[in-house]
Design a protein around this nucleic acid. Structure first.
Lengths: 246, 246
DNA sequence: CGTAATTTTGACTCCGCTCAATTGGCGTGG
DNA sequence: CCACGCCAATTGAGCGGAGTCAAAATTACG
């Protein structure tokens, strides 16, 4: 194989236009030409080992990251050292948007399994956005959806009881996995009970107890990190059980 | 006064370049020329009566709004009808960013006192952003800061106790009022105990009891909606009192 | 000025936390 | 290959913070 041919092959393999996740990351309905203008978005890819962090709170911000494969948690550390999990991210989702506003990251992103991300230098995102309207629209949508997602979590934490929160969490996970072509009913949790608890505003013991209760009620089957959803409708009912008026 | 002169005067009065809030809304450090290119951002202004809503969850999205004066709350209603306050907004802050992602608003924005907003049709925001880099940067920052703000609330709701949350709320209010040239230590709450409680994930009775407790502890003085902060340092201490180890 | 809404306060209850012991999984090294 | 140790998860007992229910006080508003 000649040198140029090899180079082309490599380029193709790291090009967004050839990526099977592009429907999750990029605007849809683009022509082949248009798609190629986006191949400049990603500068490099970066592997992150399980337990390692992509970036830390306080670090200077320079790029956004798209998850290619793997699983991440984002955590926020308060002044007095308490740590709170603020989100979980999987393939096709965008990381690092917290850093735009203040030129440094506010949260830390840690891989919960061996992962890989596409590095998108933020200057390129903005440059391409100015010259290519579909990308601009798409980028704004992604930012806005992150706001909406966070508001959903606020609703969760602010007005739901522990069992409702955990049910909502499971339903959400199931939906996101489905959208990625995984089984909707059977999966492996990548996070610990403690991390789930932190995200949902409860203690790890409460998470564990609720998993057991859901199992007794034949809503799920749990063995450690393995979860099988037996009754998604039941979970949705638990999640919406407003304490009804007389 | 001639007709044209009158028209000019009116235009000047609604122009961003002449607005005394522009440091809060717009990118800083622009030349007079550059500032004028932004005068097209705002199409009209809109007054909203106390109790009325600027937009409702589910309504089609078309514009962003900058608060000129007044006070708003944003609320989210879950499937089963529970309502959660997700934020409070004052002069210079931007409303409606939740609508970008799905072309309709997800939350409802309600005025808690007679208010006025500048209407910025979103298409104009995007057009101007593409052609004017400082605006693009600024807009991205504003979106990102909203994400960071929401994550702060998640931390509040997920890992702080009721008294810590209320202290944090008061400190935050005080800081935002100060940034707008109001007194840092004395102000009138525009929202009810119920709305504070919803925002902070507690019941209105708990809010009331904590206000009383803070008063006993000489941290604040409350008479209904009037609040005077006596010991901001004390409040900050309450807000960060991690349950210390032995 | 009267009625409704909001706020305060008290008494009691219960959900989720704390503390503690036990079980189960998994990687490492003998 | 198994034993050991470590970490995660489960489960129990008891407690306490915040919720619920209820009534009184105060204020807002038509």
């Amino acid at each position: 194989m000649t040198e140029p041919a090899l180079a082309t092959l490599t380029r193709l393999r790291t090009a967004c236009s050839q990526c099977n996740l592009r429907e999750l990351c990029l605007p849809m309905g683009l022509s082949a030409d248009e798609l190629q203008t986006l191949d400049n978005l990603v500068s490099t890819r970066r592997k992150v080992r399980r337990g390692d962090s992509l970036f830390y709170g306080g670090e200077p911000f320079s790029a956004l990251y798209a998850v290619r494969y793997g699983f991440f948690k984002s955590t926020l550390t308060s002044g007095d050292g308490r740590e709170q999990v603020t989100g979980f991210y999987m393939a096709g989702e965008l990381l690092g948007m917290d850093g735009i506003g203040g030129d440094r990251h506010t949260c830390t992103l840690t891989a919960l399994e061996d992962s890989e991300v596409c590095v998108m230098p933020f200057a390129r995102v903005e440059d391409l956005s100015r010259n290519f309207e579909p990308l601009q629209r798409h980028f704004h949508r992604v930012l806005s959806r992150e706001i909406v997602r966070d508001q959903g979590v606020m609703m969760l934490l602010g007005s739901m009881r522990a069992e409702e929160r955990l049910a909502a969490f499971l339903v959400n996970l199931s939906q996101r996995l489905t959208a990625r072509g995984f089984s909707a009913s059977e999966f492996v949790l990548r996070m610990t009970r403690d991390e789930i608890g932190s995200y949902l505003g409860m203690k790890l013991e409460t998470v564990s107890r609720l998993f057991s209760r859901f199992q007794e009620d034949a809503l799920i089957e749990v063995h450690q990190k393995h979860v099988r959803i037996l009754d998604i409708g039941g979970l949705k009912r638990v999640m919406a059980q407003a304490q009804s008026a007389p």
